[in-house]
Simulated scan of single mutants.
Amino acid sequence: MPSFQTRLKITALLPGNPPEAVMEAAVEALETRHHVESNQLQIAGGVPQLNLRFLVEATEYNGENQQARESAGMMRDAVERVALTGSLMVLRRNRGRWAPI
């Protein structure tokens, strides 16, 4: 199964939400469609960034990429209920390297 990764910048928490609600929302949203391999919070350029790896059912290359993009968008929508977000990247694992799709 192809492996994908999302990188979503988090710019602020919405009032009344604890920090852990951000990752919980992201993982919960992706798990409705895919197996989430890992998740972590990193600081990139002083800004928190969620990194989630997930698997997409193997079909055909462009369809897999489209499904990953749609799922990343759905994940971002879920996170935006608890936090303000910045840029979103979707990457695909290809020959041992992560490449944007």
Rank of each mutant, 00 (worst) to 15 (best):
A68C: 04
S3T: 14
N62R: 14
M23G: 09
M89E: 13
H34N: 08
E57I: 01
S38N: 13
S71N: 08
R81D: 10
G73N: 12
A99I: 13
N94R: 12
N94V: 11
N65K: 11
T11K: 14
E57V: 07
A26H: 07
G86F: 02
P15N: 03
N51P: 00
E20N: 10
P2H: 12
I101E: 12
R7F: 01
P48G: 06
M23S: 09
V90K: 07
P2Y: 12
T85C: 09
T85F: 04
E80W: 02
E57H: 09
R69W: 08
L14A: 01
W98R: 01
S3R: 15
Q67Y: 03
F54V: 04
A83V: 01
A99P: 00
A68H: 04
A25R: 15
I101L: 15
A78I: 00
V22A: 04
N51E: 14
G63E: 10
R69K: 15
A72H: 04
N62T: 05
R53A: 07
P15V: 01
L52K: 03
V47M: 15
E31W: 05
A44Y: 10
L88F: 01
L14I: 01
M89G: 09
D77R: 11
V82I: 09
G16F: 03
V22Y: 07
R7P: 00
I101P: 02
P19R: 15
R95H: 12
Q66F: 03
A21G: 08
F54L: 05
A12Q: 15
E64G: 08
V56M: 05
R93G: 00
G86H: 02
A58F: 07
V82W: 13
S3M: 11
G73K: 05
L14V: 00
E60W: 08
V27P: 04
V47D: 09
A58H: 11
P18H: 12
N62V: 05
I43L: 15
L55W: 10
E57D: 07
V36I: 11
D77W: 02
E80G: 02
V22I: 12
G96S: 06
G63R: 10
Q49G: 00
T6E: 03
A58Y: 06
S87H: 10
R33Y: 12
G73Y: 06
L91V: 01
I101C: 11
M1Y: 04
S38Y: 06
H35R: 15
Q40P: 00
A21Q: 13
R92C: 00
I43D: 09
E60D: 12
A25W: 09
I101V: 15
R53Y: 05
E24D: 14
L30N: 08
E64Y: 03
Q49A: 04
A25P: 07
L41M: 14
I10D: 06
D77Q: 13
M75V: 03
G73E: 07
D77L: 07
L50I: 15
L50F: 11
A78H: 04
V82M: 12
A44R: 14
L84I: 01
Y61P: 03
M1I: 00
A25F: 05
N17H: 13
Q67A: 14
E24R: 15
Q42S: 11
R69H: 08
T32W: 11
W98Q: 01
